[in-house]
């Protein structure tokens, strides 16, 4: 299985996700510099977390126009699975591959902590190792993770079952108390219409190693091993 991790100037979780991918998939991913114009052939493309271009404009807005993204978007439309984590999710919304936007956290603060997520679908490439409605612990670390969409878009995302994960309480309850950033409907991650593109704010790569305090994130990488060819 060939995986490519795109490295933008300002990406800073590229190494972290590469370590997790290698541990779960057995092979090290290609690290692809954003300035290239041709993607290597890939069974999976990962857009890592970080602050591409410093996020001085809207988060992800500059990276969405990096040279490599033309090819990434094309491959994504052709069905190559794409995983965007944190800044990667923001970039995917900026390219239009995923619906909605990520705006400033409602607390206005950067937040770094473990959160509980409820698995909303387990019939996808990314989540088949989880149980439906399973509650998993995965960290967030962002300033702009507040998921927003207009009413029609939100209705479509919900109606088509494209919510991947929701922020929840310890028992899986979805309420304001367990919503760390103000996201609509506690949405932490969404799929595109085919379920082959996933963007999420939490960082599964940060809890994929028992020494770091948990392995709930590992299920995502192991799901990919099972389903991507």
């Amino acid at each position: 299985m060939k995986t490519s991790v795109i490295v933008f100037p300002g990406s800073n979780c590229d190494r972290d996700v590469a370590v997790s991918l290698e541990q779960s998939l057995g092979t090290a991913p290609d690290m692809v510099w954003h300035g290239m114009t041709d993607m290597p052939s890939s069974d999976l493309i990962v857009l890592p977390g970080g602050f591409s271009y410093g996020d001085y404009l809207r988060c992800g807005a500059m990276a969405a126009h990096s040279p490599i993204m033309r090819d990434v978007v094309k491959m994504a439309r052709d069905g190559v699975p794409v995983l965007g984590i944190c800044n990667g999710f923001q970039i995917l919304t900026e390219t239009g591959l995923l619906p909605g936007v990520l705006i400033r956290n409602n607390s206005l603060h950067f937040i770094c902590r473990d959160v509980s997520l409820r698995v909303e679908r387990n019939d996808t490439l990314f989540a088949n190792r989880y149980e439906m409605r399973e509650v998993i612990k995965v960290p967030i670390a962002h300033h702009d993770g507040n998921y927003f969409a207009d009413d029609d878009t939100l209705a479509r995302v919900e109606g088509e079952g494209r919510v991947a994960f929701r922020y929840c309480g310890a028992e899986g309850q979805i309420d304001d108390q367990s919503n760390p950033n103000g996201s609509l409907n506690n949405i932490a991650g969404v799929y595109n219409d085919t379920g082959r593109i996933l963007g999420l704010m939490p960082h599964p790569e940060r809890l994929s190693d028992p020494a770091l305090g948990g392995i709930d994130g590992k299920g995502m990488f192991e799901s990919l091993l099972q389903t991507v060819h």
Binding site: D16, F110, I111, C112, A141, H203, A211, L212
Partner: peptide
């Protein structure tokens, strides 16, 4: 204070 700092990036904070 420390929740405003990314204390886990680099995935080696034990």
């Amino acid at each position: 204070i420390w929740e405003q700092y990314d204390h886990m990036v680099m995935a080696d904070t034990v």
